[in-house]
Every structure is written in C-alpha cells, then in structure tokens.
Design a protein around this nucleic acid. Structure first.
Length: 334
DNA sequence: AAGACGAAAGTGGTTGA
DNA sequence: TCAACAACTTTCGTCTT
C-alpha cells in the first residue's frame, strides 16, 4: 500500500502525477472494478480501496446522460419507499445550520408529525417498512448477496402490489420471497436454515413459497444439485477430489435421467457418499444426513438407485478386522 | 458404540378423474 | 373433491465389527 500523500505532487492540470515508485510522470489508470489507481508507466498500484463517486448507470449519448442525471443515492427495492421520499429531520436547524426560532418549532413539529403519518401510516407503506426490515435482518443472518436481497424485495413488492398478501404473515412471506430469490439465482439455500432464523416455520415458508409462485406465475427451476455438492462438501471438510468425483457421478445420473422428480439435496447427499467410497475418504451417511437435512433412508435409497442404474459394481471392502460391512463402488468414471 | 441396512407406518404434495 | 401415487421422513430392529 502506497500512501495517498505520496502522490499529492500534482504536476499539471492534465491529471499526470509523479509515480512514487518509478519517479516518472504517469497517466493514471482508474480501475473501479477493483477499486485501484494504477501507474500507466510502470503498472504499480498507486492507490487501492478507491471509492467510485460516479453514477451506477451508463449513458451512451448526451440525451441519455441528460435524462439519467439525478441527485441522491441509487434506488433500492429493499427500502420501503425505494429511498425516493424526503423527510423532515429532528435537528431543528435551517440549511445554513442556524437554529429555528422557538415560535416556528411547534409548527415544524406538527409538520414532521403529519409527514410521518402520511408516509408510514398508510397500510401498504407500513407493511413494506416492516417487511423490508425483516428481509434485511434475515438476509444478513444467512449472509445472502445484495442481488438476492434485491430480488427478494422485488418479489415481495410485486406480490404486495398485486394484492396477494392480504391476511398473510409478513415473516412467512419475506422468508418465502428469499427462498424464491435463491432459486432464481441458483443459490443452495436450505428451508431449515431459513426457518432457523425466521419467525416462520418450515412448513409455512414452503406453503407461502408455492403460493407466491402460483400468484406471480413464476417459472422456477430446482436448485442445481451441483451447488449443494459444493456446499455440503465444504461443510463436511471433504477434499476437492471428492467434490469432483461427486460432480462426475451427478452428470452421469443426469444423462441416465435419474434426477427428475428427485430432491436435489438428496441427490447431492447420495453422490457425495458414493464419491467418498470411491476415493477412500469415507463419510458416514449420518454425517451427510446432518449437514444436508436429508434422512439417512433417503440417502440410502438414492445411493442404491444410482449405483444400480449406472451399473456400478459393488465389492465388499475387507477392513482390518476382516469385516465386510462397507461396500466399495468400482467403475471408471469419465 | 458406530455404521449400514431394511421394513413399516405416516406425512404432505401432485395429478387425474 | 377425492383417491391414487411418488417421494420423503421417522421409528425401530437387526447385523457386523
């Protein structure tokens, strides 16, 4: 890290600087995707963690630039009014920072009171405000990305606008919106995980999820088992070799059409188990069951189906004590 | 005790008449 | 609306080391 003070020696108005590393005048290159300013001569990173003060939109001609020019922060579906409304603050100061006269303060107080009432006390705004707070809380606890949060907020708003949420519990609908958004972005979320952090239970979240899909006429695909394989393998501290093998097995299962109608979590759990046997890094059904929230019986059923349909040969493993309890799957997978 | 396996009973969703 | 069905879960017992 090179301190900004070192490049303060601005030589002219044509935005050239003295590079602290090579000593030459340089034309700086701004890389806002990485938040870095780079010396055009020697390529060294002169500044990092640079804040992009520009707009988040792009304009390709002067008309677009004019139309899109605005002030304030970007709009967001996660804020109940999308961040567009103005508020009267509590500081009793004018725009120059001078104190408001006491005779005007009472009037300002009444204005503030009515503005608050007119904004938040409308049913829809109050509902959205509560819902967006709940969404933010839930998404932060599960550590979801900003675009999943934004999509969940968008889905909630769409349902609210269509009058589909009358009589619905906010916490259930918010959790269901997040579940829908995760499906759209193919993020391997578990219903149990949502239910743990939400006030709503698993059954109600699942029911509301189906309700939202029906009301909004959404075409939702199942989450790819590959995503679950990565997630479960990481939680079980399995080697990348197991992950790779599990991915190969699931691809073969796809080709044989063994995956349709099956829970992707169950499929992922089963192929991880098979991959463990293949690679000699055995992971018990119980451990996989705990991580995947799929019962051991389901893992066994999927595992047997896959082994049978992919024509994988089963041979008993002789352990140290001469036992033959575990079965090894033998087949070259390509 | 741990791990694997299987049977039986029950649950909740989907589909078609 | 309801029965049939597939997928899945829970529970329990058995086997093996």
């Amino acid at each position: 890290m090179i301190f900004p003070s070192k490049i303060k020696e601005k030589k002219s108005e044509c935005e050239t600087y003295i590079c602290p590393e090579c000593g030459n005048n340089f034309y700086f290159i701004q890389d806002y995707s990485r938040g870095e300013i780079i010396c055009g001569e020697c390529g060294i990173v002169v500044l990092d963690h640079v804040i992009d003060h520009g707009p988040e939109w792009r304009a390709y001609d002067s008309t677009e630039k004019e139309n899109r020019t605005r002030t304030g922060g970007p709009i967001s579906f996660r804020i109940y009014d999308k961040g567009l409304s103005t508020i009267i603050d509590r500081y009793n100061q004018d725009f120059l920072g001078r104190k408001i006269a006491s005779n005007k303060r009472a009037q300002l107080y009444r204005l503030r009171y009515w503005q608050f009432n007119s904004h938040l006390h409308r049913n829809i705004a109050r509902n959205l405000n509560t819902a967006m707070n709940e969404l933010d809380r839930l998404a932060s606890q599960i550590e979801l990305s900003a675009n999943i949060k934004e999509m969940a907020a968008f889905i909630y708003r769409k349902a609210a606008k269509g009058q589909y949420l009358k009589g619905k519990v906010i916490s259930e609908t918010v959790a269901a919106s997040i579940y829908v958004a995760c499906h759209i972005y193919n993020f391997p979320i578990l219903l149990e995980e949502l239910a743990t952090h939400s006030k709503a239970n698993k059954k109600n979240i699942a029911r509301t999820y189906r309700y939202l899909i029906e009301c909004l006429n959404l075409k939702i695909r199942n989450i790819d088992p590959l995503e679950y394989i990565v997630r479960f393998s990481e939680e079980l501290n399995l080697s990348p070799t197991i992950q790779l093998k599990a991915c190969k097995i699931i691809q073969l299962a796809y080709q044989k059409n063994l995956t349709s109608g099956k829970d992707p979590k169950g499929l992922a759990a089963a192929v991880i188990y098979i991959a463990g046997l293949l690679e000699g890094e055995h992971c018990s059904q119980r451990k996989i069951s705990r991580v995947s929230h799929v019962s051991e019986v389901t893992i066994r059923n999927r595992y047997k189906e896959i082994v049978e349909k992919l024509d994988l040969k089963l041979y008993p493993i002789k352990n140290k004590k001469g036992g033959s309890q575990l079965m090894k799957v033998i087949k070259s997978l390509h």
